[in-house]
Design a protein around this nucleic acid. Structure first.
Length: 503
RNA sequence: GCGCCCGUAGCUCAGUGGAAGAGCGGCGGCCUUCUAAGCCGCGGGUCGGAGGUUCGAAUCCUCCCGGGCGCACCA
């Protein structure tokens, strides 16, 4: 359903006889909207951009909802619109504003985190979850059917090492050199039972606290049981006693071992399970399988595509999202994260220190291609000044106004011309559908925190300049507050941050 | 050596063809009125470098420099 901005662009395009895209100038003195249509069209009609812009501007200025259209710079047309435009735009911001664009609706699986249950979730895995869950939330908001899955290796060499480390402690022996250490290992060694289920349940608890709810948990050992069914369907060969997948013939950079040779001869590698898992995902009816992987697994993307081709499946249904690492610092000192060495910072510790909201915010704040550096001391110490609280504060302020307004009428017309701050705020709200859509399409959730900050910024300015309660514009401004509150709440929810009523 | 990612203000980073930004840090103003976790102002830049494409490049292409990660049976 086109919104007010789309309709305005369409009307201008109709008047000019060409497609027009409206932009929001960064500098408000450049007008409410701007278009580069003259610069785009100038070459085709062999006219100078500025001259063409002059002609276009005159035609645009003649439109009903436009109050002025001026040429600027190399041929931009800066447009100002009438109050009626803002009122119409505000009026159509319902509860699902910005969402529901999915067409066709896809069944999507987002597989994320999937850390081996050899220890608590560390910060890099948390970024995986924060990123994947945010993409999942965006797709859900768009209208897609999304399932979140956690895949874990319960049978590989790392798990053997983990179990052996605990077994050694139970025998009163030191942990082997390549084993796992740390307080949690010693804690698990105190009991007699299998440490893996305990670790898994602890991970699930951490994830729920982190506001990620998994719909399903898949075991590597279960998938391996179906290996015999799929190995014959693959393009393989034997070499040095091992069974190899000829993935290099299907777009991968190299071939990979599926079944080991030597001492562990006959044992499958994790890549063998990958094959079963890929088919399993698509068999379950997902139109799209999204894998969220750390940058150290970037080569895996080609592997997945290669096995899809090898099996005659559409590689376009498989999507790999990569993210860079997280560096934690304490007072400027970097902390090296190694689970086995036991000197890591766990997600639970970070949430204890800076809170769940700030943790989620920081982990999707930056683009996935960007390494993140978080100084925990700074994050804890300056928590009052974190952008996340700045945004939440705007929400809480609005909640306070609405509380104080009690059951007063909202959404009435303004008694006079709109204030600059009211227009700026409404324009920012019209950016929301575009931002959400772009964040979803680009798998770039970092656009949301940036947007939320700008929105909060516009609201705080509005709040400072425009009295709501007791003002003749009360009814209208209450409606504006309500719409703003809703969009802030939605922006925060999409990144997994709460929108408090009071602070 | 090959592949992927990054290089924008003192620091951490937004900005994926259109008019260079935010937060933190520094300096200075604003609370008898809906939450001052707020608002306003000041200072701060060869967008790593060199070419190219384009009316227009932080953005796209090539090369170079610097940093991170990966490169055959651990995941």
């Amino acid at each position: 359903m086109p919104n007010a901005v789309d309709r305005l662009a369409a009307r201008i395009g109709e008047a000019l006889g060409t497609e027009v895209r409206l932009e929001r100038p960064k500098d408000p003195s450049h007008g409410d909207f701007a278009t580069n249509v003259a610069m785009r069209s100038a070459k085709a009609v062999e006219r100078s951009p500025r001259e063409l812009a002059q002609q276009f501007a005159q035609e645009i200025a003649g439109l009903e909802e436009v109050t002025s259209a001026e040429v600027a710079g190399p041929g931009f047309i800066n447009i100002r619109v009438a109050d009626a435009f803002f009122l119409a735009a505000l009026a159509e911001m319902g509860p699902e504003y910005g969402g529901g664009w999915a067409d066709p609706v896809e069944r999507v699986q987002v597989e994320m985190v999937s850390a081996n249950p050899t220890g608590p979730i560390v910060v890099s895995a948390a970024r995986n979850g924060a990123y994947g869950d945010c993409v999942a939330r965006l797709l859900e908001f768009g209208g897609h059917e999304v399932a979140r899955e956690y895949y874990y290796n319960d049978a590989g060499a790392q798990m053997d090492r983990f179990r052996e480390s605990i077994a050694a402690l139970r025998r009163g022996e030191p942990v082997p050199g390549d084993g796992y250490r740390g307080a949690y290992v010693e804690e698990l060694a105190k009991a007699d039972d299998d440490p893996v289920p305990k670790m898994l349940s602890s991970i699930e608890h951490t994830m729920e606290r982190f506001r990620i709810h998994f719909d399903s948990w898949v075991l590597q050992s279960k998938l391996e049981q179906r290996l015999d069914e799929f190995l014959p369907k693959l393009d393989t060969y034997e070499q040095d006693g091992a069974l190899w997948a000829r993935s290099s013939a299907y777009g991968d950079e190299q071939d990979w071992v599926l079944i080991r040779s030597g001492e562990k001869g006959g044992a499958p590698t994790y890549r063998a399970a990958d094959v079963v898992y890929l088919v399993d995902k698509l068999e379950r009816g997902f139109d799209r399988a999204i894998y969220v992987l750390g940058a150290d697994h970037h080569a895996t993307a080609r592997w997945y595509a290669a096995i899809a081709r090898m099996l005659g499946l559409d590689p376009g249904r498989v999507e790999v999202l990569l993210y860079q690492f997280v560096h934690l610092t304490r007072g400027g000192e970097s902390t090296k994260a190694s689970k086995r060495a036991g000197n890591v910072v766990f997600l639970d510790d970070v949430m204890d220190e800076i809170g769940v909201d700030a943790t989620r915010w920081y982990l999707v704040n930056r683009g996935p291609d960007q390494t993140i550096e978080i100084d925990l001391d700074l994050a804890a110490e300056k928590s009052q000044k974190n952008p996340v609280y700045y945004v939440q504060y705007a929400h809480a302020r609005i909640a306070a106004i609405l509380r104080n307004a009690e059951s007063a009428e909202t959404g009435g017309p303004p008694p006079g011309p709109l204030a600059t701050e009211e227009k700026e705020l409404i324009k920012r709200l019209t950016d929301f559908p575009v931002t959400v859509r772009e964040a979803a399409d680009r798998r770039g959730p970092q656009l949301l925190p940036s947007y939320a900050i700008r929105l909060a910024d516009d609201f705080h300015r509005f709040y400072h300049e425009c009295r709501v309660l007791g003002d003749p514009a009360q009814s209208f401004r209450l409606g504006l507050c309500r719409a703003t509150q809703q969009v802030i709440a939605r922006s925060l929810d999409l990144v997994g941050v709460e929108a408090p009523e009071r602070m």
